[in-house]
Design a protein around this nucleic acid. Structure first.
Lengths: 143, 143
DNA sequence: AACAATTAGGTTGCACACAACTAATTTGCA
DNA sequence: TGCAAATTAGTTGTGTGCAACCTAATTGTT
Protein backbone atom coordinates (compact mmCIF):
# COMPACT_ATOMS: atom_id res chain seq x y z
CA UNK A 1 0.00 0.00 0.00
CA UNK A 2 2.12 2.87 -1.30
CA UNK A 3 0.19 5.80 0.07
CA UNK A 4 1.72 8.74 -1.73
CA UNK A 5 -0.49 11.25 0.07
CA UNK A 6 1.91 11.41 3.00
CA UNK A 7 3.18 14.74 4.20
CA UNK A 8 6.60 13.24 4.87
CA UNK A 9 7.06 12.27 1.24
CA UNK A 10 6.23 15.68 -0.20
CA UNK A 11 8.94 17.95 -1.53
CA UNK A 12 6.43 20.79 -1.44
CA UNK A 13 5.91 20.37 2.30
CA UNK A 14 9.65 20.56 2.94
CA UNK A 15 9.83 23.80 0.96
CA UNK A 16 6.79 25.13 2.80
CA UNK A 17 8.31 24.25 6.17
CA UNK A 18 11.78 25.49 5.34
CA UNK A 19 10.46 28.81 4.12
CA UNK A 20 8.60 29.32 7.37
CA UNK A 21 11.62 28.24 9.42
CA UNK A 22 13.82 30.68 7.51
CA UNK A 23 11.40 33.54 8.08
CA UNK A 24 11.42 32.78 11.79
CA UNK A 25 15.22 32.66 11.86
CA UNK A 26 15.44 36.03 10.14
CA UNK A 27 12.68 37.66 12.17
CA UNK A 28 14.67 38.50 15.33
CA UNK A 29 17.66 39.68 13.28
CA UNK A 30 15.49 41.86 11.05
CA UNK A 31 13.56 43.22 14.01
CA UNK A 32 16.69 45.18 14.90
CA UNK A 33 16.34 46.89 11.51
CA UNK A 34 12.56 47.23 11.89
CA UNK A 35 12.12 45.17 8.71
CA UNK A 36 9.90 42.24 7.91
CA UNK A 37 11.28 39.41 5.79
CA UNK A 38 9.67 40.51 2.49
CA UNK A 39 10.73 44.08 3.22
CA UNK A 40 14.31 42.84 3.64
CA UNK A 41 14.10 41.21 0.20
CA UNK A 42 12.90 44.51 -1.25
CA UNK A 43 15.76 46.35 0.44
CA UNK A 44 18.31 43.93 -1.03
CA UNK A 45 17.09 44.80 -4.51
CA UNK A 46 17.06 48.52 -3.77
CA UNK A 47 20.60 48.42 -2.36
CA UNK A 48 21.65 47.14 -5.78
CA UNK A 49 19.61 49.74 -7.67
CA UNK A 50 20.42 52.91 -5.79
CA UNK A 51 19.53 55.03 -8.82
CA UNK A 52 15.97 53.70 -8.63
CA UNK A 53 13.89 50.88 -10.06
CA UNK A 54 10.32 50.70 -11.31
CA UNK A 55 7.71 48.76 -9.36
CA UNK A 56 7.29 46.52 -12.37
CA UNK A 57 10.98 45.58 -12.47
CA UNK A 58 11.02 45.15 -8.71
CA UNK A 59 8.09 42.79 -9.12
CA UNK A 60 10.00 40.80 -11.74
CA UNK A 61 13.05 40.50 -9.49
CA UNK A 62 11.00 39.34 -6.51
CA UNK A 63 8.28 37.52 -8.43
CA UNK A 64 5.57 39.58 -6.76
CA UNK A 65 2.64 41.44 -8.30
CA UNK A 66 1.30 44.91 -7.62
CA UNK A 67 -1.35 43.57 -5.29
CA UNK A 68 1.44 42.63 -2.90
CA UNK A 69 4.00 45.31 -3.68
CA UNK A 70 1.79 48.39 -3.66
CA UNK A 71 0.75 48.23 0.00
CA UNK A 72 4.14 46.84 1.05
CA UNK A 73 6.00 49.75 -0.53
CA UNK A 74 3.50 52.17 0.95
CA UNK A 75 4.33 50.85 4.42
CA UNK A 76 8.04 51.19 3.70
CA UNK A 77 7.55 54.73 2.46
CA UNK A 78 5.75 55.53 5.70
CA UNK A 79 8.92 54.34 7.48
CA UNK A 80 10.89 56.81 5.35
CA UNK A 81 13.00 54.03 3.80
CA UNK A 82 12.10 54.93 0.22
CA UNK A 83 10.31 57.36 -2.05
CA UNK A 84 7.95 56.76 -4.96
CA UNK A 85 7.91 59.06 -7.95
CA UNK A 86 6.04 58.98 -11.24
CA UNK A 87 8.34 58.82 -14.22
CA UNK A 88 8.16 61.95 -16.41
CA UNK A 89 8.57 60.13 -19.71
CA UNK A 90 5.86 57.60 -18.87
CA UNK A 91 3.42 58.62 -16.20
CA UNK A 92 2.29 55.02 -15.72
CA UNK A 93 5.64 54.07 -14.21
CA UNK A 94 6.41 54.61 -10.53
CA UNK A 95 10.11 54.64 -9.67
CA UNK A 96 11.20 53.50 -6.22
CA UNK A 97 14.31 55.13 -4.79
CA UNK A 98 15.94 54.74 -1.40
CA UNK A 99 16.08 57.67 0.98
CA UNK A 100 19.30 58.45 2.85
CA UNK A 101 17.89 56.45 5.76
CA UNK A 102 17.26 53.50 3.45
CA UNK A 103 20.79 53.68 2.04
CA UNK A 104 22.35 53.87 5.47
CA UNK A 105 20.42 50.87 6.70
CA UNK A 106 22.65 48.71 4.49
CA UNK A 107 25.51 49.13 6.93
CA UNK A 108 23.37 47.57 9.65
CA UNK A 109 22.42 44.66 7.41
CA UNK A 110 25.85 43.70 6.16
CA UNK A 111 26.46 41.17 8.92
CA UNK A 112 23.25 39.24 8.23
CA UNK A 113 24.27 36.90 5.36
CA UNK A 114 27.28 35.51 7.23
CA UNK A 115 25.25 35.16 10.39
CA UNK A 116 22.49 33.24 8.67
CA UNK A 117 24.94 31.08 6.75
CA UNK A 118 26.41 29.99 10.06
CA UNK A 119 22.97 29.02 11.33
CA UNK A 120 22.33 26.69 8.39
CA UNK A 121 25.17 24.46 9.53
CA UNK A 122 26.16 23.87 5.90
CA UNK A 123 29.64 23.97 4.45
CA UNK A 124 30.13 26.57 1.73
CA UNK A 125 30.36 23.78 -0.84
CA UNK A 126 27.10 22.23 0.37
CA UNK A 127 25.40 25.61 0.19
CA UNK A 128 26.62 26.18 -3.35
CA UNK A 129 25.45 22.80 -4.59
CA UNK A 130 22.07 23.12 -2.84
CA UNK A 131 21.62 26.54 -4.42
CA UNK A 132 22.38 25.01 -7.81
CA UNK A 133 19.88 22.20 -7.35
CA UNK A 134 17.17 24.63 -6.27
CA UNK A 135 17.93 26.88 -9.25
CA UNK A 136 17.52 23.87 -11.51
CA UNK A 137 14.19 23.06 -9.90
CA UNK A 138 13.03 26.67 -10.22
CA UNK A 139 13.95 26.57 -13.91
CA UNK A 140 12.11 23.29 -14.41
CA UNK A 141 8.84 24.45 -12.92
CA UNK A 142 8.95 27.95 -14.35
CA UNK A 143 7.18 27.78 -17.66
CA UNK B 1 33.78 43.88 -3.75
CA UNK B 2 32.06 40.77 -2.45
CA UNK B 3 28.61 42.14 -1.88
CA UNK B 4 26.88 39.40 0.03
CA UNK B 5 23.60 41.28 0.21
CA UNK B 6 22.57 40.02 -3.19
CA UNK B 7 19.24 38.34 -3.69
CA UNK B 8 20.78 35.88 -6.12
CA UNK B 9 23.18 34.54 -3.52
CA UNK B 10 20.58 33.89 -0.86
CA UNK B 11 19.42 30.37 -0.09
CA UNK B 12 16.48 31.89 1.77
CA UNK B 13 15.27 33.70 -1.36
CA UNK B 14 15.33 30.47 -3.34
CA UNK B 15 13.21 28.78 -0.68
CA UNK B 16 10.89 31.77 -0.61
CA UNK B 17 10.51 31.73 -4.39
CA UNK B 18 10.16 27.96 -4.66
CA UNK B 19 7.49 27.86 -2.00
CA UNK B 20 5.47 30.46 -3.88
CA UNK B 21 6.00 28.67 -7.20
CA UNK B 22 4.86 25.40 -5.65
CA UNK B 23 1.73 27.00 -4.24
CA UNK B 24 0.91 28.38 -7.67
CA UNK B 25 1.48 24.98 -9.30
CA UNK B 26 -0.84 23.30 -6.82
CA UNK B 27 -3.52 26.00 -6.91
CA UNK B 28 -5.30 24.97 -10.13
CA UNK B 29 -5.14 21.28 -9.22
CA UNK B 30 -6.47 21.92 -5.72
CA UNK B 31 -9.17 24.22 -7.03
CA UNK B 32 -10.89 21.14 -8.41
CA UNK B 33 -11.11 19.88 -4.82
CA UNK B 34 -12.07 23.34 -3.51
CA UNK B 35 -8.98 23.28 -1.28
CA UNK B 36 -6.29 25.85 -0.65
CA UNK B 37 -2.69 24.71 -0.33
CA UNK B 38 -2.56 24.81 3.51
CA UNK B 39 -5.94 23.08 3.62
CA UNK B 40 -4.51 20.33 1.42
CA UNK B 41 -1.67 19.85 3.90
CA UNK B 42 -4.23 19.56 6.70
CA UNK B 43 -6.19 17.01 4.70
CA UNK B 44 -3.07 14.91 4.16
CA UNK B 45 -2.60 14.66 7.90
CA UNK B 46 -6.27 13.88 8.49
CA UNK B 47 -6.28 11.15 5.84
CA UNK B 48 -3.58 9.47 7.91
CA UNK B 49 -5.43 9.98 11.19
CA UNK B 50 -8.97 8.96 10.30
CA UNK B 51 -9.75 8.21 13.94
CA UNK B 52 -9.10 11.85 14.78
CA UNK B 53 -6.24 14.08 15.92
CA UNK B 54 -6.04 16.96 18.37
CA UNK B 55 -5.44 20.49 17.11
CA UNK B 56 -2.25 20.54 19.13
CA UNK B 57 -0.87 17.42 17.42
CA UNK B 58 -2.01 18.71 14.05
CA UNK B 59 -0.10 21.88 14.81
CA UNK B 60 3.02 19.88 15.63
CA UNK B 61 2.78 17.90 12.39
CA UNK B 62 2.35 21.03 10.28
CA UNK B 63 4.41 23.38 12.42
CA UNK B 64 1.49 25.79 12.76
CA UNK B 65 0.05 27.44 15.84
CA UNK B 66 -3.54 27.90 16.94
CA UNK B 67 -3.64 31.43 15.56
CA UNK B 68 -3.40 29.91 12.10
CA UNK B 69 -5.16 26.61 12.63
CA UNK B 70 -8.25 27.77 14.51
CA UNK B 71 -9.73 29.92 11.76
CA UNK B 72 -8.45 27.57 9.04
CA UNK B 73 -10.18 24.56 10.60
CA UNK B 74 -13.30 26.62 11.11
CA UNK B 75 -13.43 27.35 7.39
CA UNK B 76 -12.93 23.67 6.62
CA UNK B 77 -15.70 22.71 9.05
CA UNK B 78 -17.99 25.15 7.25
CA UNK B 79 -17.21 23.20 4.07
CA UNK B 80 -18.29 20.04 5.91
CA UNK B 81 -14.87 18.41 5.46
CA UNK B 82 -14.35 17.83 9.18
CA UNK B 83 -15.86 18.05 12.64
CA UNK B 84 -14.41 19.45 15.88
CA UNK B 85 -15.28 17.90 19.22
CA UNK B 86 -14.07 18.57 22.74
CA UNK B 87 -12.41 15.55 24.30
CA UNK B 88 -14.34 14.13 27.28
CA UNK B 89 -11.25 13.23 29.31
CA UNK B 90 -9.70 16.66 28.83
CA UNK B 91 -12.03 19.44 27.91
CA UNK B 92 -9.14 21.63 26.77
CA UNK B 93 -8.48 19.34 23.80
CA UNK B 94 -10.40 19.67 20.54
CA UNK B 95 -10.29 16.58 18.34
CA UNK B 96 -10.55 17.00 14.59
CA UNK B 97 -12.17 14.18 12.64
CA UNK B 98 -13.00 13.89 8.96
CA UNK B 99 -16.60 13.70 7.82
CA UNK B 100 -17.64 11.18 5.18
CA UNK B 101 -17.21 13.95 2.62
CA UNK B 102 -13.69 14.59 3.87
CA UNK B 103 -12.80 10.90 3.71
CA UNK B 104 -14.16 10.54 0.21
CA UNK B 105 -12.21 13.52 -1.06
CA UNK B 106 -9.06 11.41 -0.77
CA UNK B 107 -10.04 9.49 -3.89
CA UNK B 108 -10.05 12.72 -5.85
CA UNK B 109 -6.62 13.67 -4.50
CA UNK B 110 -4.79 10.43 -5.14
CA UNK B 111 -3.56 11.49 -8.57
CA UNK B 112 -1.94 14.70 -7.31
CA UNK B 113 1.47 13.49 -6.03
CA UNK B 114 2.35 11.76 -9.30
CA UNK B 115 1.10 14.73 -11.30
CA UNK B 116 3.19 17.21 -9.32
CA UNK B 117 6.24 14.96 -9.38
CA UNK B 118 6.08 15.00 -13.15
CA UNK B 119 6.00 18.80 -13.17
CA UNK B 120 9.23 19.06 -11.15
CA UNK B 121 11.15 17.46 -14.01
CA UNK B 122 13.28 15.56 -11.50
CA UNK B 123 14.22 11.92 -11.62
CA UNK B 124 13.04 9.87 -8.66
CA UNK B 125 16.63 9.61 -7.45
CA UNK B 126 17.13 13.37 -7.68
CA UNK B 127 13.92 13.93 -5.74
CA UNK B 128 14.99 11.54 -3.02
CA UNK B 129 18.41 13.12 -2.58
CA UNK B 130 16.96 16.64 -2.60
CA UNK B 131 14.45 15.60 0.03
CA UNK B 132 17.30 14.24 2.13
CA UNK B 133 19.33 17.41 1.83
CA UNK B 134 16.36 19.55 2.80
CA UNK B 135 15.62 17.29 5.77
CA UNK B 136 19.20 17.75 6.87
CA UNK B 137 18.85 21.50 6.60
CA UNK B 138 15.57 21.46 8.51
CA UNK B 139 17.25 19.47 11.26
CA UNK B 140 20.20 21.86 11.37
CA UNK B 141 18.14 24.99 11.80
CA UNK B 142 15.54 23.47 14.10
CA UNK B 143 16.82 24.01 17.60
C1' DA C 1 -6.44 61.94 -35.90
C1' DA C 2 -9.26 58.17 -33.71
C1' DC C 3 -9.77 54.36 -31.14
C1' DA C 4 -8.97 49.60 -29.61
C1' DA C 5 -5.47 47.04 -27.22
C1' DT C 6 -1.79 47.00 -24.08
C1' DT C 7 0.68 48.32 -19.98
C1' DA C 8 1.60 50.03 -15.08
C1' DG C 9 0.01 50.55 -10.89
C1' DG C 10 -3.70 50.60 -7.38
C1' DT C 11 -7.87 48.62 -4.79
C1' DT C 12 -10.73 45.06 -2.76
C1' DG C 13 -11.56 40.76 -0.76
C1' DC C 14 -9.98 36.50 1.04
C1' DA C 15 -6.77 33.21 3.22
C1' DC C 16 -2.94 32.38 5.54
C1' DA C 17 1.19 33.11 9.35
C1' DC C 18 2.30 34.75 13.58
C1' DA C 19 2.90 37.74 17.77
C1' DA C 20 0.51 38.87 21.73
C1' DC C 21 -3.11 38.18 24.44
C1' DT C 22 -7.32 35.87 26.80
C1' DA C 23 -10.23 32.14 28.74
C1' DA C 24 -11.00 27.64 30.34
C1' DT C 25 -9.19 23.48 32.06
C1' DT C 26 -5.86 20.48 34.10
C1' DT C 27 -1.65 19.42 36.65
C1' DG C 28 1.68 19.63 40.20
C1' DC C 29 3.31 20.81 44.40
C1' DA C 30 3.47 23.01 48.98
C1' DT D 1 -6.74 20.19 49.83
C1' DG D 2 -5.65 24.68 47.75
C1' DC D 3 -3.73 27.28 44.46
C1' DA D 4 -0.01 28.67 41.31
C1' DA D 5 1.81 27.05 36.96
C1' DA D 6 1.18 24.84 32.80
C1' DT D 7 -1.60 23.44 28.90
C1' DT D 8 -4.98 23.95 25.04
C1' DA D 9 -7.76 26.76 22.04
C1' DG D 10 -9.45 30.88 20.63
C1' DT D 11 -9.20 36.06 19.50
C1' DT D 12 -7.17 40.33 17.74
C1' DG D 13 -4.22 42.95 14.93
C1' DT D 14 -0.63 43.34 11.39
C1' DG D 15 1.63 41.97 7.20
C1' DT D 16 1.95 39.44 3.36
C1' DG D 17 0.34 36.79 -1.37
C1' DC D 18 -2.78 36.66 -4.86
C1' DA D 19 -7.07 36.69 -7.78
C1' DA D 20 -10.10 39.80 -9.82
C1' DC D 21 -11.02 44.04 -10.91
C1' DC D 22 -10.32 49.24 -11.91
C1' DT D 23 -8.13 53.58 -13.67
C1' DA D 24 -4.97 56.19 -16.20
C1' DA D 25 -1.48 56.49 -19.62
C1' DT D 26 0.68 54.84 -23.75
C1' DT D 27 1.03 52.30 -28.10
C1' DG D 28 -0.41 50.40 -32.48
C1' DT D 29 -3.31 50.33 -36.31
C1' DT D 30 -6.07 52.01 -39.55
Amino acid sequence: MSDNLQLEKQLCFRLYSLNKLMCRLYAPVLKELALTYPQYLVMMVLWQYKTGISIKDLGIKLDLDSGTLSPLLKRMEKQALLKRNRQKKDERVVVIKLTQKGIELQKNAEHIPAKMFAVTGLTFEKLQSLNQELDQLIENITD
